[in-house]
């Protein structure tokens, strides 16, 4: 089974064996690492526990990051929800809160679980934990969902390095959003094909996303982008569960992402030499921070 390198192979094998995608993934992992499936699932549980701790810590804090650029936006959302105001229903509110809680915790040097990276750590956990709470499912189902998400990230990473410096933000927050979309479909007991379609539909629509962080820090636009792309995952899942399909097959989408990543200017790949980082305000912030730190 170790030769399963793309989504097409995974889907075919899972359907032939009459198994869910997460089952194939944990078998693969077991084969590759020579560890029992139970041990792999225990390790996933530890990561879920860390995700929940990060959410809980983040919900309680409004401490600013070292740069002072972020850290109190989750508190603003919580206040609005407490006042009974929102455009969203409970599930979407929860996803948004959990996403801000996690990524702000990351910015203030709190403990988080990278998924797939630290800069995109607010997407997969917020979606899985919020949906699992709303569906009132047990921990084993959260594990199934996170393994499903992991499989999506792993297969994409066979072709595309999951690093803003290599392929832009499409390969970090973008891939996280596709991972989360797949996880939601698993939690709603969608089919394997729907899981893959959720990932495909999401990936198609984050293609080309650049990595242009102000002052090189994981804050602007990363913090709010995590929140946006968490909700985005719900769209991918909703469409897939309705039976809407991506006309372009997912493996071809990943190839296209790789091509786009290669064509993307290095100035838009985490080097902060273009985009938001070099807007007048972006440059002003960069200069102020540089002065502040040189004086320390």
């Amino acid at each position: 089974m170790t030769d399963l390198k793309n989504f097409g192979d995974i889907l075919e094998t899972a359907d032939n064996m009459n198994k869910k995608i997460y089952e194939i993934c944990q078998l693969l992992e077991s084969e590759n690492t020579e560890k029992p499936v139970s041990e792999i699932r225990e390790r996933v549980k530890d990561i879920i526990a860390a995700m929940k701790s990060a959410i809980n810590a983040g919900l309680k804090s409004d401490e600013k990051s070292t740069s002072g650029m972020c850290g109190d936006d989750c508190a603003k959302l919580l206040k609005m929800y407490k006042d009974g105001k929102s455009l969203f229903g409970v599930l979407h509110q929860k996803i948004l809160k959990y996403s801000f809680a996690t990524i702000e915790q990351n910015a203030r040097m709190g403990k988080i679980a990278a998924c797939p990276t630290a800069g995109s750590c607010g997407i997969v956990p917020s979606v899985i934990i919020a949906v699992a709470e709303e569906l009132n499912v047990n921990e084993e189902r959260e594990v199934d969902a996170l393994i499903t998400a992991g499989l999506v990230g792993k297969i994409v990473s066979n072709k595309l390095a999951l690093a803003g410096a290599v392929a832009g933000c499409q390969s970090e927050c973008g891939v996280a959003s596709a991972m989360a979309a797949a996880a939601i479909v698993e939690l709603y007991n969608g089919t394997n094909e729907q899981i893959i379609n959720a990932a495909a539909l999401t990936l198609k629509n984050i293609m080309g996303l650049v990595c242009d962080p102000v002052a090189g820090l994981v804050e602007i636009p990363c913090v709010k982008r995590n929140a946006f792309l968490s909700i985005y995952a719900v769209v991918g899942a909703e469409l897939a569960l309705a039976g809407i399909k991506s006309i372009i097959p997912v493996d071809e989408i990943v190839d296209a992402m790789k091509q786009v990543g290669e064509m993307m200017s290095p100035k838009l790949k985490e080097s902060s030499e273009a985009g938001l980082a070099t807007t007048p305000t972006g440059l002003q912030i960069t200069e102020e921070l540089s002065k502040k730190w040189n004086n320390q």
Partner: peptide, 23 residues
């Protein structure tokens, strides 16, 4: 090394950056 699931989910780490903090 062969890719594993845990390259994508995890590590559990102190933020904010896998390259600039955890690294």
């Amino acid at each position: 090394k062969a890719k594993t699931l845990f390259d994508v989910i995890g590590p559990v780490m102190v933020g904010p950056s896998s390259s600039h903090t955890a690294g």
